[in-house]
Measured scan of single mutants.
Amino acid sequence: TEKEKEVKRLAKERGLSPDQVRELAQRAGFSPDQAKQIADEFA
């Protein structure tokens, strides 16, 4: 999704850790499970 792409782009730009990616995703409105899946891509 657009929102997911945006979260991943920000995460890459900022060099976020997987935990930070998960927090960012949840703040963007993703469920905890979705946020974990997104964060796992950065693990």
Rank of each mutant, 00 (worst) to 15 (best):
Q26S: 10
G15Q: 09
P18K: 11
S31K: 06
K8V: 12
R14G: 14
L10R: 12
P32Q: 08
E23T: 05
S17I: 05
V21K: 00
K12Y: 08
Q20P: 00
A25H: 01
E13R: 05
G29P: 00
A11E: 04
K3G: 09
I38E: 01
K3Q: 10
T1N: 13
F42W: 12
R27D: 12
T1A: 13
E2P: 08
E4T: 13
E2L: 13
R9G: 05
K5I: 11
K36F: 08
L24D: 02
F30D: 01
Q34F: 07
E23H: 07
R9A: 06
D19N: 10
K8T: 06
E4F: 10
Q20N: 04
G29I: 00
S17R: 09
L16I: 03
T1K: 14
E13N: 06
L10C: 15
V7I: 15
A43E: 14
F42M: 11
Q37G: 07
V7R: 02
T1P: 14
A43L: 13
A28P: 00
G15W: 04
D40L: 12
G15I: 03
K8C: 10
V7E: 03
L16S: 02
I38R: 00
R22A: 13
L24V: 07
K12H: 12
R27P: 01
E13S: 07
Q37K: 15
S31I: 02
A39D: 01
F30M: 06
K12R: 12
R22T: 09
A11W: 03
V7K: 03
R22M: 15
P32C: 09
Q26C: 11
F42E: 03
P32D: 12
E6C: 15
G29T: 00
T1V: 13
P32F: 05
G29K: 00
V21P: 00
G15F: 06
V21E: 02
A11H: 01
R22I: 15
G15H: 10
P18D: 05
K8D: 05
V7L: 15
A43F: 15
R9P: 00
F42R: 03
Q26N: 04
A11C: 05
A28S: 12
I38N: 02
A11R: 00
E13C: 10
L10E: 15
S31M: 06
Q26D: 05
V7F: 08
F30N: 00
F30E: 01
V21A: 05
D33R: 04
Q26E: 15
E2A: 10
Q20D: 09
R27T: 13
K5E: 14
E4C: 11
E4H: 08
F42Q: 03
R9H: 07
A25E: 01
E13K: 07
E6T: 08
Q37W: 05
E4K: 15
K36E: 10
D19H: 10
Q26A: 11
V7P: 00
S31Y: 04
R14F: 12
E4N: 06
L24E: 06
R9W: 02
K12V: 08
S17M: 08
E13Y: 04
Q34H: 11
R27G: 09
D33A: 14
D33H: 09
P32Y: 08
R22S: 08
E41T: 06
A35Y: 00
A25C: 08
D33N: 09
Q34Y: 10
A43W: 13
T1G: 13
F42Y: 15
L10M: 11
Q37L: 11
K5N: 14
A43Q: 11
K8A: 04
D19F: 04
P18W: 14
S31R: 05
E6F: 12
S17Q: 08
P18T: 09
I38P: 00
V7T: 05
L16T: 00
R22K: 13
E6V: 08
F42P: 02
A35K: 00
V7D: 04
V7H: 02
E23Q: 10
E41S: 12
A28H: 14
R14L: 15
A25F: 02
T1C: 12
Q26V: 15
F42N: 03
Q26F: 05
A11K: 00
E2Y: 07
S31C: 05
E13T: 06
L24F: 05
K3Y: 08
T1Q: 13
R14N: 14
L16Y: 13
Q20T: 03
P18L: 10
I38L: 09
D40Q: 10
G29H: 01
R22P: 04
E6K: 06
Q34P: 01
G15K: 09
G15Y: 04
A35G: 02
A25D: 01
A39R: 03
Q37P: 00
R14V: 09
L24H: 04
D40E: 14
F30Y: 05
Q26I: 15
K5A: 14
L10I: 15
A39N: 01
K12D: 07
Q26P: 02
P18G: 10
P32R: 03
D19I: 09
A43R: 11
Q20M: 08
A39G: 05
L10H: 13
Q34G: 05
F42H: 04
V21M: 05
S31N: 09
K8E: 05
V21L: 11
A28E: 12
K3T: 10
E13P: 00
P18E: 08
K36S: 12
D33K: 11
L10Q: 15
K5D: 14
P18H: 14
D19E: 14
Q20F: 04
Q20W: 05
P18Q: 11
L16P: 00
K3M: 13
D40S: 08
G15A: 07
R22E: 14
G29S: 01
K36V: 09
L10S: 09
S17K: 09
A35I: 04
A43Y: 14
Q37M: 12
E13L: 11
F42L: 12
I38Q: 01
A25L: 11
V7S: 01
D40G: 05
R27C: 11
S31V: 03
D40R: 10
R9T: 04
A28N: 09
A25T: 00
S31T: 14
I38F: 04
K5S: 11
Q37A: 14
D19Y: 03
S17T: 15
K12T: 12
S17L: 09
